[in-house]
Design a binder for these strands. Sequence first.
DNA 1: CGGGCGCTTGATAGGCCTCAACGTAAGTGG
DNA 2: CCACTTACGTTGAGGCCTATCAAGCGCCCG
Lengths: 244, 244
Amino acid sequence: MQTNSIYPMARKLGPVAAPSHPDLSEFAALHKRKRSFAAGRDIVQQGQPQKMAYILAEGWVCTYKLLRDGARQIVDFQIPGDFLGLRSVLSGTSDQSIEPITNIEVSEVVGFDLMNAWNKSPRLSKAILWAVSREQAISAEHLAGIGRRTAIERMAHLFLELATRLAWVGKGSKAGFACPLTQYHLADALGLTAIHVNRVLKQLREAGLVTFRDGYVTIHKYDTLAEMSGFEDGYLDPAGPVLQ
Amino acid sequence: MQTNSIYPMARKLGPVAAPSHPDLSEFAALHKRKRSFAAGRDIVQQGQPQKMAYILAEGWVCTYKLLRDGARQIVDFQIPGDFLGLRSVLSGTSDQSIEPITNIEVSEVVGFDLMNAWNKSPRLSKAILWAVSREQAISAEHLAGIGRRTAIERMAHLFLELATRLAWVGKGSKAGFACPLTQYHLADALGLTAIHVNRVLKQLREAGLVTFRDGYVTIHKYDTLAEMSGFEDGYLDPAGPVLQ
DNA sequence: CGGGCGCTTGATAGGCCTCAACGTAAGTGG
DNA sequence: CCACTTACGTTGAGGCCTATCAAGCGCCCG
């Protein structure tokens, strides 16, 4: 069971520590309690104190910031194997909200345990730093996309990023993936309106590049999309931390 | 001298460890060699292997990503006391370039030493994680700005962010600060063209809110700017890591 | 003195937003 | 079982914000 729940995580941390490594088992000991959350109900809210982190076992999540005028910016989506709320445990409070997009299952990581383990295992702490660094790399890439790419390029780029990340945890491939996002999610992630998202999706569909329909993304021409959006997967996998 | 060079850093890490604390002195031992770099010449380039990090002692720097079509997105500016290239040491390679905006002085942190110290001092490693987390929080805020704020709001927000960060290291106040950026830098940071930056600056100036002229930003109406741009400094200072 | 860099301004165009309406599917309550 | 509601998707018309193209100014520096 336990092993099962940490599978996607272990898979991603593979380069960092083999599953048999004592640090990873120590890591497994960190998150004992499993919990479920319902789609649409925030599990963390911007500005509130936060003492828990989670590892996502099943389902999709997004972390977002809310501006004062009600506008929303999704910073990133999380898929199985990703951490949730890691930074908020460290700082004690969160500057972002976390919303389950689907019903989700997570394992709970108590802040206190995490800090405890931190002192004992440099290897574990490096793995966590690596995870935070990766988040940073991803949001920098999103920044570049929203700042400098057109709507259609952003959309293509996002689909390719998701395809790549999902493929790494065995939930999709370069040919497509199940995708529970609404056009509103896409809009808030890409800095567009849902209406324009709809038009962009139509363009991509009619150009025979990608189809997003009925909760499934079908990638017809991966290479063309990668070319037009400038997608390179380097930022997603910084080859793991330097060990020793 | 040494103390001098780490002053802004120590000031920021104040909540984490008092300057007299053994971990901070250990930290000081990390960066012995001082170096200078000339304005405009990249010290790290996207995609290249990287074994050094730096602590900025004097001058301004920006980290940016270059898209394939030549467009540039500045992810963040660094001011004295900030780390440079921290993430690239951990992953061994950098997905961003680092350009000194002015002539700068830095202290060098050798990657090997950093990893060594990491194993010995959990307190130090938490401080580093805190620094990376802070970078993440900042780029998330920039993301929200570029995605959901208008040009004029973004500009105001950036000025207030810089004023706040500079004030913390004794290089400015809410009333203004010396600012070596060109309008091209602002454009690349805010996802605009330099031409439009010019017009936005004109608006802000004629509205009597901020003036950016001759390398100096003068903030005339701090509160109005904060109000219109939705600036809140929370994301800049996550209260330091949770200790113990 | 020529040339590059940074700044400024005008005219025009276009990408994306806003407003408005309608369709479909699923859920709810009577 | 049907009216009603809500969520999500789709399409059209018009307009604003920002980009693009173009030109000119001042300054520093070789």
